[in-house]
């Protein structure tokens, strides 16, 4: 019982402090700019581009795709920086020096970003309804909320893996920006997956977000939860696999770094 409570405390403190440190909470403008305005401006850009490419009647396709894709801001950038930031700020040796449970420490880095990512998607949908006329009248809203939650969790799984990789590179921003922008192509947010070449489709289905976006589109179109349940289960599975690979690599990097004495050597 004592171990459980101390792990819970570690989880909560780790998640809260890493999140606070990331966004310099003394300057809320930085948060609003990076987490609210940037993703919304990006969403508007692709919605206008999409409607210009096809027609205004297709706006829903782009609004839903890009609204869900916003979860990657937290899932990729946020989580990656939370894990990778330990090395940049010189706190990695202290972290590896503690007897703290690594599983709790590792997954704790993603928790706040899951909540934050979900909030970002909800804000995007709200703007989509208010400013771009997205119709949610036929949507099972609790099912859509579940889809948002599942997709955010799975994207954070990929973020954990990226964060782990950022421990062995100096170009953290290159890695996460690259993955973030690739998701814009591969997730089907802006280009229907069926229009992509076969090899790209295979990559799409191996990534988080793809099924989440597809499920959200079906739900907004009036489909019940039962119809999208298989997509959501698979989405969750994909995210968990990425998260677990990230955890295994995290543990392995710690082992190698300690053995060779290269904890802060890039």
């Amino acid at each position: 019982m004592r171990v459980l409570s101390s792990n819970l405390r570690l989880f909560w403190q780790g998640t809260l402090l890493s999140y606070r440190a990331l966004f310099h909470w003394l300057r809320p403008a930085q948060y609003v700019a990076s987490k609210v305005f940037m993703p919304l401006a990006q969403m508007f850009f692709f919605v206008f581009l999409g409607t210009f490419a096809t027609s205004a009647s297709n706006a829903g396709f782009y609004i839903i795709g890009n609204a869900i894709q916003i979860t990657a801001v937290s899932g990729i950038f946020g989580v990656t920086m939370s894990v990778g930031g330990e090395r940049e700020t010189g706190t990695l040796p202290y972290l590896f020096g503690t007897p703290a449970n690594r599983l709790v420490t590792f997954f704790g880095r993603a928790f706040m970003h899951i909540l934050d990512g979900m909030l970002g998607v909800v804000i995007a949908f709200a703007w989509g309804v208010i400013l771009l006329g997205l119709d949610l009248s036929h949507t099972d809203l609790p099912a859509l909320a579940l889809t948002i939650a599942v997709t955010t969790v799975s994207t954070c799984g990929l973020g954990l893996l990226m964060g782990c990789l950022s421990l062995i590179t100096v170009n953290v921003m290159f890695v996460n920006s690259f993955v973030y922008f690739l998701l814009l192509i591969f997730s089907g947010a802006n280009v229907p997956i069926a229009e992509l070449p076969n090899w790209m489709q295979a990559i799409s289905y191996a990534l988080p977000l793809t099924r989440g976006i597809a499920a959200a589109r079906l739900l907004v179109g009036g489909a019940p939860l039962a119809d999208v349940a298989p997509l959501l289960w698979t989405e969750l599975g994909v995210g968990l696999i990425y998260g677990l690979i990230g955890y295994v690599l995290f543990s392995w990097f710690e082992f190698i770094a300690k053995r060779r004495g290269i904890l802060e050597v890039f």
């Binding site: 999409g50 490419a53 290159f174 192509i185």
Partner: peptide, 18 residues
Amino acid sequence: FTVLFQPIIIALLALWML
């Protein structure tokens, strides 16, 4: 990334979309 990769990814997306 900013100078080369991001514009190329945007170009790829736009070429597909348009």
